[in-house]
Structure formats: C-alpha cells, structure tokens
Amino acid sequence: MARPQTSISAVDPVWDRITTEAQRAVSDEPLIGGFVHATILHHPSIDKALSYRVAAKLASNEMSMMVVREVVDQAYADDPTLVEAARADLVAIFERDPACHRLLQPILYFKGFQAVQAYRIGHYLWSKGKRDLAYFFQMRVSEIFGVDIHPAARIGKGIMIDHAHSVVIGETAVVGDNVSMLHSVTLGGTGKEEEDRHPKIGDGVLIGAGAKVLGNISVGHCSRIAAGSVVLEDVPPCKTVAGIPARIVGEAGCEQPAISMNHMLGPWEG
C-alpha cells in the first residue's frame, strides 16, 4: 500500500526575503515600526500585504479601507495571475532601478509599483463587467499617484514605471511584458476618434521620460523611444527613435533595452 503523502507548507523565497528586510528595517529605524508591521509583518503572504497596501492608499471618505480591501482580496482569490504579475513587477523594479536596493522598497514607497497594482485590480473589475467600480479605482489611482491608466487598457507583467508622475495610458492601449517607462509618458490618442485608437507597445520596450506615443500605432519589441519624443508612426522592432516627430536614429543598442535601462544615444545616432 502506498504511503500517504505529507503536506508541506509552500515555500515563498520572495516573501521570506521581504519579511526579513522588513524586520531589519524596523530594527534599524524603530520609528517606522508601526508602519512596517501594519504593511508587511502582520500579513502571512505577499497577496495579503499587497491588498492591505492598495486599500490603505486608495481608501477615502467615499469608500472605506475595509471595503477596498475586500474588493482586492476577492480579485486576488479569483485571479491568481494578478499576484503573479505583481511579483514580476516587483522583481523588474529591483533589477532595473539603481535606487531600489531591497524588494521591500516598492511595496512601501514606490508609487509606480503601487499604481500599477491598483490598476491591475481595476482592469480585473472591468473584465468582470464592474465598470463603475473600475472607474472608481482609476479615479483614486489618478488622484493619489498622478498616474491615469484606463481600466480597459491591457498591460503585461514585469512592468516598471520609474518615478511615475503624470503617466497617462489610454483605453485601447496595449503594453507588452517587461516594458520600462519613465515619468510623464503618454500612450494616448490623436483626437476625437473612437474605437481602437491607442498605441500597442511590444515586449521589452524602453520609453524615455516625457515621450508621447499617439494613435493606433505599433512599437516593435525591444525598441527604444528617446526622452521627449513624439511618436506618430509605427516603430520597427529593435530600433531607437527620437525627435518631434520621432524618426529612426539607430538600432536599439542591446537585446533588452527595457532591462539595461540605457537611454544614451550612441555616436552614430541623434
């Protein structure tokens, strides 16, 4: 007769590292102990910590933290890919942002990470037909973080929005996996057109600060958009574009520009 299997509790090295970092942070700076305990150490898992953090940021006199947290907890329970995407976003920021020295930091302090996780809940609600609740999440993300992402927009995983100030992503925009963008980026339309009217950003794209990508155009995978550019036409894969209006100025310069985060134009470019 086969021996019954013994259940083994799940091992989560990412969450273990976050809690270890949190304990060290409290030891180093006791004044933030209440904040870190409430946000990290009181929770048994990363999804519970994330639901608390999103709810704490989005709650208002119009919707209590308890209600917001119930919405987020339900979304995470119903769709585990939301937490998978959050993990990928967390690792992306840790690997790409030289100002990020601990996995703990984005959860506690980085509004780009927090805004994207709140957007993901809004997108989940939108996909379930809960449009007004999704709009509420969009409104609060815009008010709190200065990031306006329509809940119908489709955004992949491994996303880093650095500094995350004045970022706008429109209703029919699509953003692939492992994309990095900086502050003041707009993925918008070109006027009053309806239907499919926003950009489609491929995997691994790097979008510089202040860049505007407008209209139903495609930005090919692993391309770079220089800071301050206005992109109005399709961008082929693995190219660098710059200027107003943007034009191709060279190759992307590496296989994964969104990971290398190299914004400098080479001597053959510009």
Score class of each variant (00 low, 15 high):
Q114M: 13
G208N: 05
D73H: 07
S45I: 09
A258L: 06
A227D: 03
D162C: 08
Y135R: 07
F137C: 06
A173I: 10
I169G: 00
G188S: 07
C100A: 09
S223R: 04
G33S: 15
I244H: 09
S9N: 06
K111H: 06
N61H: 10
D16P: 03
R197P: 03
H198I: 10
A55L: 09
A86P: 12
S7M: 06
E194I: 13
P199A: 09
S229H: 04
S9C: 04
Y135L: 14
L265T: 12
I161E: 02
D79L: 12
A134H: 06
L133D: 13
G266T: 14
S64H: 07
K192L: 12
V235N: 13
D89K: 01
M65A: 15
L41Q: 09
Q138H: 07
D78S: 15
I149E: 02
A246W: 01
F137G: 09
V11N: 09
P30K: 10
A209Y: 02
R140E: 02
S166N: 14
T6P: 00
F35C: 05
V67C: 03
A85V: 01
A242I: 03
Q23M: 07
V168T: 08
G158H: 11
I93V: 14
A152L: 02
L265F: 12
F110A: 06
L214Q: 08
S7E: 05
A2C: 00
D79I: 00
S184M: 12
A164V: 06
A164M: 06
L232E: 03
L104H: 05
S218F: 11
R96M: 07
A86F: 09
G146P: 01
V241P: 01
V71F: 09
T186I: 11
H221E: 14
H101D: 07
M63A: 13
A22V: 09
G129N: 10
S260L: 13
G220H: 02
I259P: 00
K239P: 00
H37Y: 14
P151C: 04
W126M: 13
N216D: 12
V11C: 12
K239I: 07
A75G: 08
S218H: 15
F94L: 12
R247D: 01
V219P: 08
F137L: 07
R131S: 10
H183E: 10
S127V: 06
A85K: 15
V68I: 15
A209R: 00
L214E: 05
S27F: 01
T20P: 00
E195C: 02
A227R: 11
A242W: 06
W268C: 08
A88S: 13
L58C: 13
I18F: 01
Q256N: 14
V72S: 02
L206Q: 04
G188E: 05
Q5D: 07
Y135K: 07
L232C: 08
A49D: 12
L187S: 03
G33V: 11
Y52E: 13
H123Q: 10
V72Q: 08
T240Q: 10
H42C: 08
A258I: 11
K57M: 12
